[in-house]
Design a protein around this nucleic acid. Structure first.
Lengths: 333, 333
DNA sequence: TTGAAAGCGCTACCAC
DNA sequence: GTGGTAGCGCTTTCAA
């Protein structure tokens, strides 16, 4: 008969090694304040290995009164390679600082409930990309023991540290560049996919700002990420009289560019096209896609910010503008 | 003076409401077995709200002896939209079943250490995409209370349930299709990026298998995901005499296709090109990219598998082949 | 209908 | 050097 083995506890280890639970704890945690004889250490390690003992993180942090868990809110929309690598770097860096990093997705919960379920885990720090956290949520998390709450996205939130990713700058770059290239009737693609407004709105605003006080016009172009929608938009192009378009990002740019080319619109002669994100993708298009390169902060830097905030939770919430944006001109503009 | 507020506990709620901690627990958990008078309920809820009380998940599961945490190992490589949507659906479905879903990345730990750090969280179930878990790890997790361990990827692991994503089938489809189209000298791109072998090897094997017993030849084409590498490969194309290539996936296909076209190679006349994953990308290329559409299992199905396994941990580890693969012929083949 | 108390696994203080 | 033990926040049995 197969018996489901009970999870071994430190008491089991103690019993097997013939010592007390305290001693087990001292040995396995390398407690410096107390010296344990070498033979005893051996026996304890031996016993732990034999039983396959794994400490119980929840019990430990319950006892300690705090955890080293950093909770990162996992966005509901699939993320691109840019953010993906950033996240990996961040996780790695936090791991080096001995934090336990956990991504907690909150599909289907409204901001309030989300913050509550995060708080139940009593993380020492909470990182929230994009929106989805309001001042109330921040307060709740802090009251639940979070020593650092960091948002990174286009908006800051009262009470939280912010890595301000100023997507206005992305649009600004694009707008200024297109204007400089002699374009005056500029379209800006606004993805219809939900959840992208937080990025598309500031990017649009940036374009407007760059063109403010000039004779250039800005036209919003709602666009779903489908061939049909792109074809429809391209079909109406001649009527629009636009001579340039900032396509939100490289993927939408590819979609639109293809549709325009299929309509016989010449790029960049008739219409200049710009993307953003500087994906490999853009280099492979013909004409090569001009884009806005985005510099995310390094994961290491953010990890250090988190660590500092955790060690000194009294500090004022810092707001860092961290998004570098620079035009990469290729052939489409 | 600003005082760091202490996290309120159920004892605080009890005090404020003028009842015992037991009563608080009964009210907040809606314990059916015990009836609490309406006025008391009100007072408790009131107090909890006023204090911003959030239950302590760790303490709860420590007491309960088990958690409802499902741990999903977060892959180190950035994932595509395909897997991203699958993951979201899965999280949503598990959430509906009242599990707490957490993605735990293990950048930099070897399989053994990874399993250990997962086990420290005492999850009730562990889902591991791709490799990174050996039979020892599975045993460790089970001994630590995991009632279900599910791998999903191309290989199965002793002791764990498996969603067998048979990437051979992807290659097989591609190979058979290219053969059928009259191609006999077939190249297969093997990405040089680390971590992709688990997928590329089976896909290659599938191609070989499809062509076994025919006069067609298979040539491995190692390729890094850079323009330079692609240009180099394309430069040597004439010498190779290949008349078709299965490019691992749509992204590598785009990379290579572009390089070939820049070399003056005509597609599909001189060389047929196939991708895989059926991304939007492929539809936008010219010629439109033929691809292998991959059908991942629905997140709901996997969630149900997990739930069943959790409820009946005695059951034999099930192995499901779950990857549908079908050729989508467009213009590049 | 409500309260007292035990105990989940762990660590840290204090005795020996 | 090592062991006894209190107590982290919570649920649940038993008593009142």
């Amino acid at each position: 008969m197969v018996q489901i083995p009970n999870t071994p506890t430190s008491a089991d280890v103690a019993r097997l090694a013939g010592v007390s639970r305290a001693t087990v704890s001292y040995v396995l945690n390398n407690t410096r304040a107390v010296r344990i004889s070498e033979p005893t250490r051996q026996r304890v390690h031996e016993a732990a290995r034999e039983l396959g003992y794994v400490p119980h993180a929840a019990a430990r942090s319950l006892r300690a009164g705090h955890s080293r868990m950093v909770l990162i809110s996992a966005p509901a929309i699939p993320v691109g390679p840019l953010y993906g690598t950033f996240l990996n770097e961040l996780q790695w860096a936090l791991g080096r600082l001995d934090y336990t990093v956990v991504q907690y997705g909150t599909v289907g919960l409204r901001g309030d409930e989300a913050a509550r379920s995060w708080a139940e885990l009593r993380p020492v720090a909470v990182l929230v990309p994009g929106p989805g956290l309001d001042p109330g949520g921040v307060a709740l998390l802090k009251r639940s023991g979070a020593r650092a709450v960091v948002t990174f996205g286009p908006e800051r939130v009262e009470g939280a540290h912010a890595l301000l990713m100023d997507h206005d700058a992305v649009g600004h770059c694009a707008g200024a560049h297109l204007y400089e290239r002699g374009r005056r009737r500029i379209g800006v693609v606004i993805p219809e996919e939900p959840g992208l407004e937080v990025y598309s709105r500031p990017r649009l605003a940036g374009v407007r700002q760059a063109l403010h006080g000039t004779c250039a016009t800005v036209t919003e172009l709602p666009l779903a990420y489908t061939e049909r929608a792109a074809a429809r938009l391209a079909g109406q192009w001649a009527d629009s009289g636009l001579d340039a378009v900032f396509a939100y990002n490289d993927e939408y740019a590819m979609l639109l560019m293809r549709a325009l080319q299929d309509e016989g619109v010449r790029i960049p002669e008739d219409v200049a096209v710009m993307g953003a994100d500087d994906l490999m993708l853009g280099r492979l298009l013909r004409p090569r896609l001009s884009t806005v390169h985005i510099d995310l902060p390094s994961g290491r830097d953010l990890a250090e910010l988190v660590d500092r905030a955790v060690r000194d939770p009294g500090g004022e919430p810092a707001v860092h503008a961290v998004l570098g944006a620079a035009v990469v001109r290729r052939e489409s503009s």
